[in-house]
Amino acid sequence: MKMEKKVEEVKKVLENQKMIIAFSGGSDSTILAKIASQVKGEFLLITVDNGVMPKECINSARKIAEEIGLPHKVLKENFLEDPNFKENNPNRCFICKNKMYGELENIAKKENFPLIADGTNISDLLEDRPGLMVNYQKNIISPLVNAGITREDVLRYLKENKINYATSTTCMATRILTGEEITTKKINRISYAESLVKTLSKNDSVRVRDQKGIAQIEVINIDPLLNPNILKHLDAELKAVGFEKITLDIGSSQKVKKDLVVYKPCKDEKNKIMFETELPYKIDIKNTCRELESLGKLKCSDSMGIAMCEIEGQNVTVFKNGKIVARKVQNPDDAEKLLIKVLPRIRRIL
Rank of each mutant, 00 (worst) to 15 (best):
I283H: 04
N98K: 10
A61P: 09
K11D: 11
N59F: 07
G26A: 14
V52K: 00
V208Y: 08
C171H: 02
D124V: 01
A36P: 07
K337V: 08
N16Y: 03
K198C: 05
K245I: 05
A22C: 12
S303F: 15
K270D: 14
E15W: 01
R175G: 09
Q314I: 04
V219D: 13
V219P: 04
K138C: 11
V154Y: 02
N84A: 02
I283L: 04
M304I: 06
E56P: 02
N16H: 05
K257G: 14
K299T: 02
I214R: 00
L126W: 02
K12E: 00
I58R: 12
A240K: 14
E67N: 14
L298Y: 02
I141C: 03
E180C: 07
E56H: 10
A240Q: 01
N139H: 15
R92E: 09
T183K: 00
F43K: 14
I176T: 05
T150D: 03
L115T: 15
Y101E: 12
E87A: 10
C93T: 01
K86A: 00
K337Y: 06
D259T: 09
E103A: 01
V325E: 14
I107A: 12
V206R: 10
P332C: 12
I64V: 08
R92S: 01
E9N: 00
M19L: 11
I250N: 15
K63Q: 13
I222C: 11
K2G: 10
K185G: 13
G213F: 09
E66T: 15
T47V: 11
R62H: 05
N203H: 12
T174I: 08
F43Q: 15
E67W: 06
E160K: 07
F79P: 02
V134N: 06
